[in-house]
Nucleic acid binder design. Structure first.
Lengths: 344, 344
DNA sequence: TTGTAAGCGTTATCAA
DNA sequence: TTGATAACGCTTACAA
């Protein structure tokens, strides 16, 4: 028989420390939290005992009492998208500097998940939330306004003035890219959207149409396709784009899909950019390393993450009520090989 | 003046529900948790009131009492590495099916972070932990054994029989890849390691050396390089590998570095695999889409995540004490374009 | 079927 | 400088 019995490991609590050091639990708490007044001697004694018996605080009890967890959450649609990873890393760095811990929640683009997170926010294990919702409905907005803890939203350009937001006009980003493609002499530019019912889906498609109008081009819906913002999604729809649209350029709503499309083009022995130019959006790291390297539009994900984190922390640490803030970043075109034919 | 005053939003608690529906808090609790007995009528009334006044439970209080959070944590070294994302997604799926929520912790490969997570585990906001430590020291093992909550470790092949572990022999994975390269007629095979002080770093380098011995090849340390398991890391060290080792193949300790190396080779107008073959390890999605597509060794990250999650959940849901388990997966070679010259 | 009341491990307000 | 003790919001015996 093995020597494994359940030792019913009772947690060591503040009471054990108190008893063993001959003081009250109140004093132990004061010493451990460096709050109130206590003598040097008791301090030493308590600290020694605490260390000796391996005391660690019970965060549940602490938070119940103090209504603070020192944790903040970042909820993103898909942790598989490097753009959210970049955002998360930026957030992580900021919150860490302020002594908070980041917990990452991946909602898998489910609105119900997002609602649940926002709704139970005040009672969850976090003090505040940064959320980048794929969908941003009235219900989202209502829930966020009623949330009992600070929420910062990272989203497109359509914001609610009553909600702390970090914004970027990705529609303008698409226009930037389209201008570039047209400037390169492309005329049949297909548009590959992600899910068209999402915030970025709507904005980016609008950008495409707006840019057509700006340049006096006809709107041709047979040039418009949709997938799901993933590498595999781009790859799968590429064949259809080629056969149905016969484009000389493909504007993709994000880099992941662009990379998927390029993979298919390569398999078909089509040259990028000579035969077909490809442009993405988001500026993920892999786009810089792909072959050909991917022309894209940076939406400054890391920067937005940083800004959101700082805004949220300022809400958490100051108790003055301030007007909701709307921060904004401006998209930047990054030209690489996938859209520019090199003569020679 | 704005109309924003702090409405001191008091949480709505179980007491409010009790009062408004004219029953005791015990009854409310029973109804809300479908526990014990209560009449249909009170149930309806309580539920209606709860919904009406927007009650949501306070998880802090709940957990303090029940000593359960219904959350589990996954701690990985670098959320920027797609292999951990794949792992996380698999874990997420399993825990979700069991009604748990996943919180993702990125330790940035800091042992101190990892220690802290394990140490305060029992008092944290999670019921259990899956950790894939980059470093796996005696201290790790000691802390894990003493942890008051179940911990499952995802690591290499050197395991502790007293710790629940999901293992993979990545050294064997390297040998598989080396055999393949040698079979392709490559003879000067450079090895690009990640951080050599880490679990995978040690194992993969050992695999390289072992495979040299197996094939009666001399050990040549001028063929061995190290970077940091990232895309940028591979890119940066590529120049040095070329100039110092002049290899006809580069075996990389992971896909990210392999992709970084291939980027550099392309910039130098070197052909892969004709001039230099490249092999990676981990089988990340981007490797299948790169150009050329990347030969790699799958370590079944998703599968290991799934197994770890199921093991952890079984520990959480059964109160029988069972012997620690050691589960293992076997690496698989995946041959793609980056290592095989196509004649014609 | 329901209610009373004792905790869960803390923090914080009083007095002492 | 310290110690009792009342919360924090919930679950769960135990009684009724």
């Amino acid at each position: 028989m093995e020597d494994i019995k359940k030792e019913s490991k009772r947690e060591v609590t503040i009471m054990d420390v108190a008893e063993k050091s001959g003081v009250s639990i109140a004093t132990v708490s004061r010493v451990l939290n460096r709050t109130g007044r206590y003598s040097d001697e008791t301090s030493r004694k308590v600290l020694a005992v605490a260390r000796e018996i391996g005391y660690t605080p019970n965060y549940m009890a602490k938070s119940l009492k103090r209504k603070k967890t020192e944790q903040i959450a970042l909820a993103v649609a898909d942790i598989g998208n490097p753009v959210y990873v970049a955002m998360a890393k930026a957030v992580q760095q900021v919150v860490k500097e302020h002594g908070y811990r980041l917990v990452l929640l991946s909602t898998e683009a489910l609105a119900s998940e997002e609602y649940g997170i926002i709704k139970s926010l005040s009672k969850q294990y976090v003090d505040g939330l940064i959320i980048s919702p794929l969908l941003y409905s009235d219900e989202h907005r209502e829930l966020i306004k009623q949330a009992a803890r600070p929420v910062v939203v990272i989203t497109g350009s359509e914001s609610d003035p009553d909600i702390d937001s970090v914004l970027v006009d990705s529609s303008q980003g698409v226009r930037l890219a389209m201008e570039h493609l047209l400037g390169q002499g492309r005329s049949r530019i297909a548009f590959l959207n992600g899910r068209p019912d999402t915030v970025p889906g709507v904005a980016r498609l609008n950008g495409y149409y707006a840019s057509l109008i700006e340049h006096g081009l006809p709107r041709d819906d047979s040039l418009v396709f949709a997938s799901d913002f993933t590498l595999a999604g781009g790859y799968q729809v590429a064949e259809e784009i080629l056969s149905r649209a016969k484009p000389d350029a493909i504007m993709c709503a994000n880099d992941l899909m662009a990379l998927g499309v390029m993979r298919y083009l390569r398999e078909q022995r089509l040259r990028v950019p000579e035969d077909i130019a490809v442009v993405g959006m988001d500026d993920i790291e892999h786009g810089a390393s792909s072959f050909p390297s991917l022309t894209t539009v940076s939406l400054l994900a890391a920067e937005r993450g940083r800004m959101a984190a700082e805004l949220l922390l300022s809400r958490l640490t100051s108790d003055e009520i301030q007007k909701p803030k709307q921060l904004q970043v401006v998209p930047r075109l990054i030209v690489r090989e996938s859209s520019v034919v090199v003569k020679g």
